[in-house]
Structures are given as structure tokens and as C-alpha cells.
């Protein structure tokens, strides 16, 4: 029982530490693309380990298993890359300086954010979802 409590406490502390590191990265790093690294990674693991702690607590100490938390973890793991990519795309579109720093695509076309018309016509991706 004591071991379980120690594990839960450690998981909670590790989770809050990673949340802190994510926010510190956001406040400390010098430009947006570098700042993006802190929140996307540290926060997913931070929240993940906290939710594991909570799951472990209600399962091992209280005795009523709660699987709820998996849903939040799953949701955050699915959405973190999406938000990161949306922010990166908007940043590339808005900052001329950033645009000049981009490497070549290695293809005959440019990056999708910068020529959206091309992206719709020349896409070679196979889709299983119909687009209107």
C-alpha cells in the first residue's frame, strides 16, 4: 500500500515538473518555432503521468477502477500535434523572415501553406475521405 502511494506521489510530481518545463520553455526560448517544442512535448507527458497517477489511485487505493482518464490522455495525444502544426503553418504564412529560412521541398512545387491552390490540384496523396 505504501509503495503504491509513493508511486502515485512520484507520478504527480513528475507530471507537474514536466508541465513546469513546458511553460519554462515557452517563456525562455527566443523564437516561436523553438518555443513550440516546449509545450507540445512536455505537456503531453506531464498530463499523461498525472492521469496515470489518478487512475492508479482510484483503482488501487479507493478500489473502484476509473478508466475515464485514458480518454483525456488519448485526446491530448491526438490534438497536441494538430495544434502545433496549425501554429507552425500560421507562423510560416505570416512571417516573411521565416519563409526565407525554409529549405527547398525537393519537389517541383512549394510548401502547401504558401501555395494552397497548387496544394489542392497537384496533391498526390491517396485519400479515403471524400472532400466536398
Amino acid at each position: 500500500m505504501v509503495i503504491v502511494e509513493v508511486v502515485i506521489s512520484l507520478l504527480v510530481l513528475v507530471g507537474s515538473f514536466f508541465l513546469f518545463v513546458g511553460s519554462l520553455g515557452l517563456a525562455k526560448l527566443p523564437d516561436l518555432m523553438r518555443r513550440l517544442h516546449g509545450p507540445t512535448k512536455a505537456t503531453t507527458l506531464g498530463i499523461g503521468s498525472m492521469l496515470i497517477a489518478s487512475m492508479l489511485y482510484f483503482w488501487a487505493v479507493e478500489g473502484n477502477p476509473s478508466i475515464h482518464e485514458l480518454l483525456i490522455t488519448l485526446f491530448l495525444f491526438l490534438t497536441a500535434p494538430v495544434t502545433a502544426q496549425m501554429i507552425a503553418k500560421a507562423h510560416i504564412l505570416r512571417e516573411t523572415r521565416e519563409r526565407k529560412a525554409l529549405p527547398d521541398t525537393g519537389r517541383s512545387v512549394g510548401w502547401a501553406t504558401l501555395d494552397p491552390a497548387e496544394a489542392d490540384e497537384r496533391s498526390e496523396v491517396t485519400r479515403t475521405i471524400s472532400t466536398p
Binding site: 518555432m33 512549394g110 510548401w111 502547401a112 498526390e124 496523396v125
Partner: peptide
């Protein structure tokens, strides 16, 4: 961090 896809979808930034 993956930032963008090329317009033809064959390379990743």
C-alpha cells in the same frame, strides 16, 4: 516538430 507538407504531399517540413 512537423511544420508543413509540400503542395504535392511528397515531402514534410
Amino acid at each position: 516538430v512537423s511544420a508543413d507538407l509540400s503542395a504535392d504531399g511528397r515531402s514534410l517540413l
